[in-house]
Design a protein around this nucleic acid. Sequence first.
DNA 1: GCAATGACGCTCT
DNA 2: CAGAGCGCCATTG
Length: 120
Amino acid sequence: MGSDAYARIYAVVRRIPRGRVSTYGDVARIAGLPGRARQVGYALHALDEDAGVPWQRVVNARGEISLRGDTGLDSLQREMLRSEGVLFDEQGRLDLDRFAWRPRRDSPKRARLGVRENRT
DNA sequence: GCAATGACGCTCT
DNA sequence: CAGAGCGCCATTG
């Protein structure tokens, strides 16, 4: 534990703006750990509550909350995201084309879809 | 050190 | 579009 990889992962997650989300695979890739999406899951699982890392902004590539329901964290994550303006459909999924965070380059396509601001 | 597990992802059906 | 299968690799028992 205490590995440098975890620190990189946390640093990337901290960069995700409020009202946006990223995926495990994207976080891994941005952190310089391509193909290690699962390690992102381990890192977030071992995370403390008061670590100041917005773990709720990380979802899987389907735009769905990937937590298992037995801990109750899945509902917590959905609530936190909803309070940030991230909307879920009836299938419990969010639209990655609208809410996915794309660092280093802002796609005009996404801007056209109305992501530039979150107004309830 | 081997086998099973998992907050994942991509491809094929 | 949904489900199943396979690949991936750090972590755990």
